[in-house]
């Protein structure tokens, strides 16, 4: 017979292990569906992205590329100074979204290399940008 303190420890350890296992399962399922890889327009054009998988597409918003369509629909181009991709988005763009500055679009690529975004993030302030984007900007500076 186990005495009761041992029993309690056992219960505690079992709960810990079972919940950790449960969490592990949940994590694996949830991760598989909710990981969004980051790509640049060049990578997309090189065919690295499967059609209809959710990704993050990052780049600078091409100058003079923003077109307003019906209602809240907009179209703009994201560029990494090598290739560009046309992004379509319906909704309100963030305050910090500007042509000539960095943005990240979350969404899906279509067969025709069009990108449908359901979320657009813009850089937060003059000093800060998502690390993925600062990459692109640094490369650009190197080239210039």
């Amino acid at each position: 017979m186990l005495n009761s303190l041992r029993k309690r420890r056992l219960v505690f350890v079992i709960v810990l292990i079972v919940s950790a296992l449960l969490a592990g399962l949940l994590i694996i399922c949830a991760l598989q569906q909710n990981i969004n890889f980051f790509f640049t327009p060049s990578q997309v054009m090189a065919g690295e992205v499967k059609v209809n998988t959710r990704i993050r597409l990052g780049g600078m918003v091409q100058k003079n590329s923003l077109i307003r369509k019906e209602g809240l629909e907009v179209q703009f181009q994201l560029t990494d100074f090598v290739k560009q991709i046309t992004v379509t988005y319906t909704g309100i763009l963030p305050d910090l979204f500007r042509e000539g500055q960095g943005a990240v679009a979350l969404g899906y690529l279509t067969q025709e290399n069009m990108f449908f975004a359901d979320e657009v993030l813009a850089k937060h302030d003059e000093n800060y940008m998502p690390p993925e984007l600062s990459h692109i900007v640094k490369n650009k500076d190197k080239k210039e």
């Binding site: 969004n36 980051f38 993050r56 690390p131």
Partner: peptide
């Protein structure tokens, strides 16, 4: 996870917010 993944593979990714709801809520 995104930090570790970047450190090991050099690829950038982000964990979307549904992940947290789906894992955290059942627990």
């Amino acid at each position: 996870f995104p930090l570790a993944y970047d450190a090991f593979t050099g690829k950038k990714l982000s964990v979307g917010f549904p992940y947290f709801n789906r894992v955290f809520l059942p627990l």
